[in-house]
């Protein structure tokens, strides 16, 4: 992993205005995204005109203090939540133009998810959890791809176990496996290491890194852990619902540095 110092760059808002003709170049994209909760005195602007592009084949980390809107941004990009105004696009698809059912299908077929905890259905075995999106679609998972994913996960011997029989790290790897099974355009990971010990965290992050490097997947990870974010190709910092700074080829030190400055 590269660890050279990269300059702090300003938010990449330039060129986004003409993004229509380059929509295909981005796996996911937010344009002037605004998310407002409540109204009147209790109004909270969780996202305040966020514009962000996520190129394919990249590992992006989204960071920011609590309440910065990083989770909201991810949920809106992933079609789990809707924007108040602005656009959230997956490939060339504007999520706002989709019905709830169409968004559900899009999540199933074109996206992958890894949550902090409770990623797996307790009644299904590890393998069944991995193939869940395919099963929901009424398809059989591509056996070759399944084999590839499973071997990368290194849990071949635990495939027929229930989640309760797996360690936390194994459970998260199964969750990543499930996220990958439909060869999604983007894998969204929401604090995937939040509930893991440091060893398991490292394993999972290395695995996510290899997912991008070897399997050429696009991964977006929300995290508050600088160590975790350092595995990404690019770190986007949010504060008060807006992108404040971006960091390419980050290191833990650079991230801590920026975090320190943002806290001031």
């Amino acid at each position: 992993m590269a660890s050279h110092r990269a300059p702090v760059t300003p938010p990449t808002t330039a060129g986004v205005e003409s993004g229509d003709d380059v929509a295909g170049e981005y796996a996911a994209c937010a344009r002037h995204a605004v998310k407002v909760y409540g109204a009147g005195d209790t109004e909270v602007r969780a996202l305040d005109d966020v514009t962000l592009e996520l190129p394919p084949g990249q590992f992006t980390a989204i960071m920011g203090p609590s309440g910065s809107g990083k989770s909201t941004l991810m949920h809106c990009l992933a079609g789990l939540d809707t924007l108040t105004s602005g656009q959230a696009l997956i490939g060339g698809t504007d999520l706002a133009s989709l019905s709830d059912r169409e968004r559900t299908i899009l999540r199933r077929d074109r996206l992958g998810f890894v949550f902090q905890a409770f990623n797996l259905l307790p009644t299904l075995t590890a393998e069944e959890n991995i193939t869940l999106p395919a099963d929901l679609a009424g398809r059989t998972a591509d056996p070759e791809w399944l084999a590839t994913v499973v071997s990368a996960l290194d849990i071949a011997d635990r495939l027929h176990h229930r989640p309760s029989e797996l360690s936390g790290g194994q459970q998260q790897r199964v969750a990543v496996g499930r996220a990958l099974i439909s060869r999604p355009e983007v894998v969204f990971a929401d604090e995937p290491t939040g509930a893991l010990d440091s060893r398991a965290s490292t394993e999972l992050l290395r695995f996510l890194r290899s997912v991008v490097d070897d399997l050429h997947q696009t991964v977006v990870m929300v995290t508050h852990d600088p160590g975790a974010a350092a595995y990404a190709d690019r770190v986007v910092f949010l504060a008060d619902g807006a992108v404040v700074v971006e960091l390419l080829d980050p290191t833990r030190e650079r991230i801590l540095d920026i975090m320190g400055r943002l806290d001031d």
Partner: peptide
């Protein structure tokens, strides 16, 4: 509730 939410998140439709 959480299981059902997860199922919906990973692409289970309301009908499913």
């Amino acid at each position: 509730t959480r299981e059902l939410g997860l199922l919906r998140a990973v692409g289970g439709t309301r009908r499913q």
